[in-house]
């Protein structure tokens, strides 16, 4: 099982994501100018401040050469996880619906929150059950999930909401307490909380590991894709 963790100028959670993935399988970093994802089963777009987050968070990173390869990987059915800034990048690139706005409080929030698994039939939640609670930290200033009501209704209808903040735990004013969403096919997931910071009880929780274990189980059921440019 091979994980690839993207690395943009300004990424800061790439090393923790690499560490988390390494607990489940092989893992390597993929530089943002690299178009080659050959042999990689699961792609992680990590948190941070890609390209300084100028203009809007994730707006510039979506044009990175590596993102072309990620789009092809997703198109071929490969698993892609966007965490925090990575979630913003996936929304900006159109791989996931919606957008992330500045927190309602305007404050940077950094704390442990409880999440409820809403859809356990995705590439990153199949090792969970619907209704499970996961304790995972958030740390962001632009994490308020937004989509127009009509899109939200359609999203909920098709099981597009993967994770919701538990009652009282919404840290940013996200609509309908949405913490993470999935594409229609179930292979591309984005979330604001950081599962890669919750892989060891030493730091409070290892609930985040279940997302990476899920991805490994998902990828084990597929043939590896050859995806050079």
């Amino acid at each position: 099982m091979r994980f690839g963790v993207l690395q943009f100028p300004g990424s800061c959670d790439d090393r923790d994501a690499l560490e988390a993935c390494s607990r489940i399988g092989e893992a390597r970093l993929v530089w943002h100018e690299d178009r080659d994802l050959e042999g990689i089963d699961v792609v992680v777009v990590p948190g941070g401040f890609s390209y300084g987050d100028y203009l809007r968070a994730g707006a510039i990173a979506r044009f990175a050469p590596a993102m072309e390869a990620v789009a092809r990987h997703a198109e071929a059915g490969g698993a892609v996880l966007g965490i925090c800034n990575g979630f913003q990048v996936l929304c900006e690139s159109g791989l996931l619906p919606g957008a992330l706005l500045t927190n309602e409080s305007l404050l940077f929030v950094c704390r442990q929150v409880d999440l409820v698994v809403e859809n356990a039939d995705t590439a990153f939640t199949r090792e969970c059950r619907a209704g499970d609670r996961l304790s995972i930290p958030v740390k962001h200033q632009s994490g308020r999930y937004f989509a127009p009501d009509s899109e939200l209704d359609a999203l909920e209808e098709r099981g597009g909401v993967v994770l919701r903040y538990a009652p009282g735990h919404n840290p940013n004013g996200s609509v309908r307490d949405i913490a993470g969403v999935v594409n229609e096919r179930g292979n591309v997931v984005g979330l604001m909380p950081h599962p890669e910071h919750a892989v060891d009880t030493l730091t409070g929780s290892e609930d985040g590991l279940r997302l990476f274990e899920s991805a490994a189980a998902f990828a084990a059921g597929r043939e590896p894709t050859a995806l050079s440019a």
Binding site: A59, I60, F63, A99, L101, F146, P148
Partner: peptide, 8 residues
Amino acid sequence: KLLANPLI
């Protein structure tokens, strides 16, 4: 495509 996000 870049300067604005038409969704928001």
